[in-house]
Design a protein around this nucleic acid. Structure first.
Lengths: 189, 189
DNA sequence: ACGTTTGTGGTACGACCGCATCATAAACCG
DNA sequence: CGGTTTATGATGCGGTCGTACCACAAACGT
């Protein structure tokens, strides 16, 4: 074999090309040839590391999803011990407040319709859909009498704000302000 | 000419094929050939009534968007005079509570990434993004001290719940219940 | 040292893509 | 009634698609 290579690194290099293309023009743009060109490798390599196109779409999603979980955990754990700070960090993770999160949310949007039809793809991200919500609910247990409902509503609103920001219907600052306003209420400041 | 035909009806027939395909597999599936087959017409007819593929995507979106506005208006006007009922109807319009609304929201999801890159497409739907919100805010003017913020949050939450329902993360009934709970709060029952 | 595995490139095949061209039949206009 | 317009079908062209196949060089195992 030519020099032993870091398999995971190559996969990531290719997966990043998938994300960029998907974010630019949807999954429609994610062709083996385009991915190869974007990642600056040959078509053959894309096949070698991921297999078929469906495998590629699944693999790239699994990687970005693992990244998302890791980053979210990092950011939440970087908060102080205040309940409110932690809840806020969790909710803000759903907002495209930097290029990384923005790109990630756009990629999810590109996959969205496929999730509806492909249970395999959905499974790749379905570990944490209500994990966030459960976490928020637990954090709110002592500050409100219906933590589950408040958590659900906060998470849903953050998800809605995400879409509005991406479409340019709302500024990031305004979305953050709205979340803080609701936290004011829930935490009865 | 062969018998004069209802232009608008033919366009709708073809547009509906676009919606079905987009809802099934995203815009990727919306090819001239697939659309023609789904609408049971020839490829030539699709071209005749819409032009290029981009024109087709735009045209089909304009039609579904006009439909959405019309239906929303109907449903909201069918409500009684109660403020809360009207606000509720507006918010529920954002939820996929029947097949028609579900299909529509899935179509919007299929277009989403394209909206980000194509200002022309975005313009086709950008008449009412905050129209809903403005309307809700006006309705809430007398019942809360910050109608704008509450309206924004309610609309955002409804949008977030929409996605959750589509993905099967939440039942329709639960989403409606959550909205009613928040309306309880806002209307201080 | 040598065969086997690993990583990589090139490429060919059949299908499908968007789009344009040619053909044509039926209804309207004069 | 003849010509123009409208609505439709069939088909072909150049390109890209996913995928499979072939080749090969470098490192590893023995």
């Amino acid at each position: 074999m030519p020099r032993q290579v870091d398999h995971a690194r190559r996969r990531r290099q290719i997966a990043e090309a998938v994300w960029r293309l998907a974010g630019r023009g949807g999954l429609e743009e994610v062709t083996l040839r385009q991915v190869a060109a974007e990642a600056d490798v040959s078509v053959r390599l894309v096949q070698y590391y991921f297999g078929t196109r469906d495998d590629l779409l699944l693999g790239a999603l699994e990687i970005i999803n693992a990244d998302a979980g890791e980053r979210a955990r990092e950011r939440v754990e970087a908060q102080g011990p205040g309940l409110r700070e932690i809840v806020r960090a969790v909710l803000l993770e759903l907002l495209p407040l930097d290029e990384e999160r923005r790109a990630r949310h756009v990629v999810y949007a590109a996959y969205f319709v496929r999730f509806l039809a492909d249970a395999g793809l959905r499974a790749a991200i379905q570990d944490d859909p209500d994990a966030l919500e459960t976490m928020v609910a637990a954090l709110l247990a002592d500050v409100t009498e219906s933590p589950g409902d408040e958590a659900a509503f906060l998470v849903a609103a953050a998800g809605g704000l995400q879409g509005q920001i991406l479409l340019g219907h709302r500024t990031e600052a305004d979305a953050v302000r709205l979340i803080d306003r609701q936290l004011d209420r829930v935490f009865r400041v």
